[in-house]
Amino acid sequence: MSSGDDPCPEHPARTRRRSLRYCFYIAHHGRGAADDSQWAVDLSEAEEFAIFDEADRHDFSDPNGNLYGLRRDEESNLLDLGTEGEQIAKFWDPGKNQPTHGFPLWPCSETGPENRKKQLAPKVALKKMLDARLLSRRQHDRLLKGKYG
């Protein structure tokens, strides 16, 4: 990725629904701490933004305004988003006219201080994906159990 010294280089496009801005945070692109989840190396910037765009389009949000996204193939199989097989991504609440960034979510949470605790894809966001038919019931149920879809 072409970051230079910018820790979060911004994508030129905005989402179609709310015109949200997006940037690619280097901590989740190979330059973070050991416990920072990493986007899959075969995922292009355009694909990462497309996941964010679709999350905004369907409003796959939690009560705090964070968004959640996924990637599927042409046969509706879930594809990995992260280097550890993660299949759901979280995008922080974009706020007002500020670019946000996203990262793959681990399938299980991790104990630790609240600000470093690994988070899960919330049930409410997975239910919205199910209702939008972007997740099958089988995929939805397996993700709720910490398994891959």
Partner: peptide
């Protein structure tokens, strides 16, 4: 334990082990 696991099994010694992924 305030962290997730992919499952849990019992040992013959009466203990438990749970896989935590990278954790």
């Amino acid at each position: 334990y305030d962290g997730g696991a992919h499952g849990v099994i019992a040992t013959s010694s009466g203990g438990f082990i749970a896989p935590l992924g990278r954790n």
